[in-house]
Write a protein that binds this DNA or RNA. Structure first.
Length: 121
DNA sequence: TGGGTGACCATAG
DNA sequence: ACTATGGCCACCC
């Protein structure tokens, strides 16, 4: 793998950091969406940026539970970015989150919204 | 400078 | 319920 991995500029570094920080706050056994994080961070439609930021999550010093972040439908859209195609699902199932057809079952129940839970952060 | 792309989302028909 | 479209913002040719 060439070293083209994502260059984090000074400008977006803080944003990346914020994203990772929120993701680390997701409790075990829960999951949230890119849009929820984006919303919590204040950006209106920066959901794509969150996803892009997650692309760099693997190279962070501190562990980032990227498997707890899925899209609005609870679908594991980022699974192809994991070391192995099944890594994301395995990680979720190890937290008692049921996954079927690349989709979190009963997503509503495990959904964790930072702007609700971290209201007074 | 400009066009294509992306681990997204909301809206409209 | 499903597809199409636009918006978003940063990155990479």
């Amino acid at each position: 793998m060439p070293d083209n991995s994502i260059k984090i500029s000074e400008k977006n570094k803080d944003y990346f950091d914020s994203v990772f920080q929120v993701v680390r706050l997701i409790p075990k056994g829960r999951a949230t969406s890119y849009g929820a994080i984006s919303n919590y961070l204040g950006t209106k439609s920066g959901a794509r940026m969150v996803g892009w930021a997650m692309n760099a999550s693997h190279s962070q010093k501190e562990y980032v539970p990227a498997h707890r972040v899925v899209n609005r439908n609870g679908m594991l859209t980022g699974k192809h970015h994991f070391p192995s195609p099944t890594a994301m699902q395995e990680a979720l199932e190890s937290e008692e989150i049921l996954v079927k057809d690349d989709k979190i079952q009963n997503f509503k129940a495990v959904y964790w919204d930072p702007s609700e839970e971290l209201k007074f952060d």
